[in-house]
Deep mutational scan, measured.
Amino acid sequence: MAEIKEKICDYLFNVSDSSALNLAKNIGLTKARDINAVLIDMERQGDVYRQGTTPPIWHLTDK
């Protein structure tokens, strides 16, 4: 899980924002549900936040 978090942070640092599906595909996974639990956990920790569009767009925080 730590490896996936690191990949998410690296990708969002370079791209600035992404949907869960696009993010999953760009870090080597196939479906948004493969990454949603990790994104929600990271959101609780304050590492990422989502804009409430459908589907949500994920961003890194300034943390």
Rank of each mutant, 00 (worst) to 15 (best):
N22L: 05
C9W: 12
G52W: 04
K7W: 05
P55W: 02
C9R: 15
L12I: 02
V38P: 09
D34V: 05
F13C: 14
S16N: 13
V48R: 02
K5W: 05
K31H: 15
R33T: 15
K7N: 04
V38C: 14
Y49R: 13
K25C: 07
D34C: 00
S16A: 12
N22D: 13
M1V: 13
R44E: 11
I40H: 09
D47G: 00
E6T: 07
G52R: 04
I8G: 05
K25T: 08
Q51V: 15
S18F: 01
K63V: 00
T61A: 11
K31M: 09
Y49V: 14
L12H: 05
M42C: 01
T61M: 10
L60E: 09
C9G: 06
V15P: 02
S18P: 01
Y49T: 14
N14Y: 13
A20L: 06
E3N: 10
Q45N: 13
M42L: 07
K5I: 04
T30R: 07
R44L: 07
C9S: 12
L23C: 05
D10Q: 13
N14H: 14
T61R: 08
A37M: 06
L39F: 01
V15K: 12
Y11Q: 10
N22F: 00
V38I: 13
D41S: 04
L21N: 13
D41C: 01
L60R: 05
L60C: 02
A37I: 02
K63H: 07
G52E: 11
K63M: 03
E6W: 01
K31Q: 14
I57K: 11
Y11A: 11
R44W: 02
I8R: 07
R33Q: 14
R50K: 14
I4H: 09
K25R: 12
A20P: 02
L12F: 02
L60Q: 01
S16R: 14
L39V: 03
L29G: 13
Q45T: 11
I57T: 12
S18H: 07
T30A: 14
R33N: 14
P55H: 05
D10Y: 05
E6H: 03
D47T: 15
Q45W: 00
V38Y: 00
I4L: 14
T54N: 15
E43A: 02
S18A: 12
I57F: 02
F13H: 14
E43I: 00
I4N: 08
V48E: 09
R33G: 15
T61F: 01
I8P: 05
Q45K: 04
N36P: 04
I27F: 08
I40D: 11
T53S: 10
G46R: 00
N26G: 13
C9I: 15
I8W: 00
K7P: 00
L23R: 03
N22H: 11
I57R: 11
T30W: 07
I40P: 06
R44I: 09
F13E: 15
S16P: 11
K7R: 09
A20I: 02
N36H: 14
P56Q: 04
H59S: 15
A24Y: 06
S18Q: 05
V48H: 03
V38N: 10
I35H: 03
T30C: 13
L60Y: 03
N22G: 08
A2R: 13
F13T: 15
